[in-house]
């Protein structure tokens, strides 16, 4: 369950980049998570909701963009995608490849609601 520690890191990044007076208004956090980053989005969402439930970030949602695992083959020049994370080229079988994407675990944007989210 390293999603819990990842959720804690997200909270810390919000706290670092957004002034405290605005925390109540953080509507969403946009994340890019690679297919083979080893992060389960549902677990991350659950962890984030659990640790922010009683805090000023309780209205914040996580918006996850899933990034495919893409491999560029230096031998045949073709870019392919696969779900498993094979780095061998699925076109020609060469191992001379470069991984283009799929391991991301990035926070890209924080969306602030204006006016403030109504506190219930």
């Amino acid at each position: 369950m390293h999603e819990l520690s990842i959720a804690q890191n997200i909270v810390e990044i919000i706290h670092k980049h957004i002034p405290e007076a605005e925390w109540e208004k953080v509507a969403s956090v946009h994340l890019k998570i690679g297919k083979v980053a080893g992060v389960v989005s549902d677990s991350l969402d659950f962890s984030f909701q659990a640790i922010t439930a009683e805090t000023s970030l309780r209205n914040t949602r996580l918006e996850v963009e899933s990034i495919p695992f893409r491999v560029l083959c230096n031998a045949c020049g073709v870019t392919t995608e696969n779900e498993v994370g094979f780095t061998v080229c699925s076109e020609c079988g060469s191992g001379n490849t470069k991984v283009l994407s799929g391991s991301e675990l990035d926070i890209t944007e924080i969306e602030i609601a204006e006016p403030a989210v109504k506190i219930s």
């Binding site: 980049h17 990035d106 926070i107 944007e109 924080i110």
Partner: peptide
């Protein structure tokens, strides 16, 4: 809505 772009590694 206003958007703050940060582009950070979560870890």
């Amino acid at each position: 809505m206003s958007i703050v772009t940060i582009e950070r590694k979560v870890l």
